[in-house]
Amino acid sequence: MGEYVIETQDLVKVYKDRSGVVKALDGVSLKVPKAVLFGLFGPNGSGKTTLISILVGLQLPTSGSAQVLGFDCVRESIEVRKRVGLLPENYGFYESMTAYENLEYLGKLDGIPVQELKRRIPEVLELVGLKEWINSKVKSFSRGMTQRLALAQALLKDPEILLLDEPTLGLDPQGSTMFRKLMEEFVKSGKSVLISTHLLHELGYICTQAAFLRKGKLVAQGSIEELAKVYSKEKGYSYELLVAEDVELLVKELMKLEGVIHVSFENDKVRVRASEDISDELASLVGKFRVKAMVPISPTWDELYQFYQGGGWE
C-alpha cells in the first residue's frame, strides 16, 4: 500500500440496457490519502454512487482497477469489505426486526463476536442518538432515524475507512451536527472518510480534500489549497486587509500595484482582487499603512464546484 488508502486507475463502468449504453465512469483515477475527510463531489448522475459501489464490490468495473488499503476491489473484495464501512445511497433494514436485531445480524456478518456486539451495539446507537430506540422495530422509524441507523451499521465494525453516499439525507440540524462531530473524530484517529454528495454548502466545509466528478470523468482532485490555486490562476486572487487609518491612501497605493484588477473598501475593510499572487507586495505595505491584518480569501467549495463543473473540462 502506498500513501493512498483508496486508489483507482482508469476506472471505466459502462451500463448497457434497453435504452442504450451509459458510460457512468470514464477513466477515473482517484487518489484518497490517509486520515482525511475526502469529498466526492458531482451533480446527479455524475457517477458517485457507481464509483463507491465498485470500491466495495457491489458492482464490477468494466475496465481499469481499484484498490482499497492496498487490496484489489475485484480479486480481494472480501479483504476490502472487512475493513470498510459503507453507507449506501439506497438501503433498507429488516422492518420487522428491532434496531438491535438488525445491527446484530449485520455485525455477525461483519465477523464481530456476539459478546463484543452486546457492548458495541448500544455504543454506536448512543453515538448516532438512537439509544432509546434500541429495541424498537425499524418499521416505526422516521426517515432521519433510519439514516442514523444506517450510519450506525457503517460504524459498527469500527472500520478503517468509511464510504458514505449522501450521508446527511434526511438528518435534522442536530443530526448534521452530530454527524460532523463524529466524522471529525473519526479522522482524528487516523482513519479516512469518503463522502459522496452534492450538498456542498452542508458538507463541503468539513472536507479537507475533494474530487470533482462530471459525467463520469474526474475533473479535478486534491486539497482545497491545491484546487484553489488552479481556481485563482483563472479567476484571480482575493485578499482582505483590515486598516486602522488612511484607507483612501492605501487604496490609491494598491491600484498602482501590478496585477491588481479591482479594489473596494467599506469602513476599515479593503478588498483587493488581482490576476496574480501579490501576497509579497501586500506584505510590504503592511508596515507602511498600519494594516492590522492581511488575509488571502480562499474560494469556498461552492465556488470551486461551480468553477470545476462549468469550466469546460468536457
Binding site: I78, P88, Y91, G92, E95, L109, A150
Partner: peptide
C-alpha cells in the same frame, strides 16, 4: 427492493 441486500453484501461474505 428494500435495499437490505446492499447492507448485507457490503460485508465480508461471499
Amino acid at each position: 427492493d428494500k435495499g437490505t441486500i446492499r447492507l448485507v453484501l457490503a460485508r465480508p461474505i461471499y
